[in-house]
């Protein structure tokens, strides 16, 4: 194919690159530049047509005027208003705690999957993926059925005599955690399973042969080798949870919002587009941190399961 791209089929090869490239430039990169620009615009004049609008034809003078009109006012607002700060913190808290819960729940499942006989493993993988294919919204909705005041959970607790009167499950942080853990479990289980499943069984035999009992080999061999999967799973869960909107909106309360909800409210409720854009830019910058850590881990350790 390289010949195909560079030799006779030059035009075809170029086209294969150019089409998706231009598409992504137009619909992925450009929108983010616009977000960045609008986040630096004045709130009052921000609704379309918002200012400053950058006119290429205006040339150098236009550019100077454009830069002069940029304002960091929105960012100042973000950091001074406790609403935004507490939203970021709330998101961070939910993401950290939920990722830890997912890890605690997902690792034993992934480990059990990797221990299962080969044929069963394939079935288990499908079983774990299957709920992911049913719509996200449906899965959250399913929990509303269970968690609402007259829901099954309260009915069950009442029937068992564990509580005297129905508890409020919906509109609590507990509900958010249940929803998040439920929705993201496959994203944690599958990468861990993939790295566990790749471990050469001979390594565990070698450990036993060298005098290492089974439980100790888990700590000394299995766990270190599963670490790439754990990191990938944690990243795959942490980042989207940070920006989660649907779960806290449907299951959580209104007293403390996650940052996704704040963005949504600023945009749809308050119609304050510059602030919403600034919220998005800061969120993105926050998310660069875990990605950078992950990248660092990967480049530091290039062995990638060489056996």
């Amino acid at each position: 194919m390289r010949e195909a791209m560079q030799g006779k089929g030059i035009s075809g090869g170029r086209l294969a690159i150019a089409i998706p490239y231009l598409w992504l430039l137009a619909f992925f990169l450009a929108p983010f530049l616009i977000v960045l620009r609008i986040s630096l615009s004045q709130s009052v004049i921000a609704q379309p047509p918002y200012s400053p609008v950058f006119e290429i034809v205006a040339g150098w003078e236009g550019l100077k005027a454009f830069v002069a009109a940029l304002s960091f006012e929105n960012y100042a607002t973000l950091f001074s208003d406790s609403l935004y700060v507490s939203s970021y913190l709330k998101s961070l808290e939910v993401a950290v705690v939920a990722t830890a819960m997912l890890l605690a729940l997902g690792f034993p499942i992934a480990y059990a999957m990797a221990q299962a006989p080969r044929r069963l493993q394939a079935v288990l993988v499908v079983l774990v993926i299957l709920p992911f294919w049913t719509a996200f919204l449906i899965r959250i909705y399913a929990w509303i059925n269970i968690l609402q005041r007259e829901g099954l959970l309260n009915e069950m607790l009442l029937a068992l005599g564990l509580v005297r009167e129905p508890l409020a499950w919906l509109a609590t942080d507990t509900a958010i955690y249940i929803g998040v853990v439920y929705s993201y479990l496959p994203f944690m289980v599958l990468p861990i399973y993939a790295s566990l499943e790749k471990i050469d069984h001979n390594l565990l035999e070698a450990a036993a042969d060298l005098g290492c009992p089974h439980w100790k080999a888990f700590w000394l061999v299995t766990l270190p080798l599963a670490l790439p999967g754990v990191a990938a799973g944690a990243l795959l869960c942490f980042i989207p949870i940070m920006g989660e909107f649907v779960i806290p909106d449907l299951l959580g309360g209104s007293q403390s919002l996650m940052i996704g909800q704040t963005l949504w409210t600023e945009f749809f409720g308050n119609k304050d587009w510059p602030i919403a854009s600034a919220v998005a830019v800061v969120l993105l910058m926050l998310l660069v941190v875990p990605i950078a850590i992950y990248q660092h881990m990967q480049t530091r350790d290039p062995r990638a399961g060489s056996a």
């Binding site: 977000v35 980042i239 989207p240 963005l263 945009f267």
Partner: peptide, 8 residues
């Protein structure tokens, strides 16, 4: 995050 893509 979806909210960011959507907004952009």
């Amino acid at each position: 995050p979806e909210v960011i893509s959507g907004l952009a």
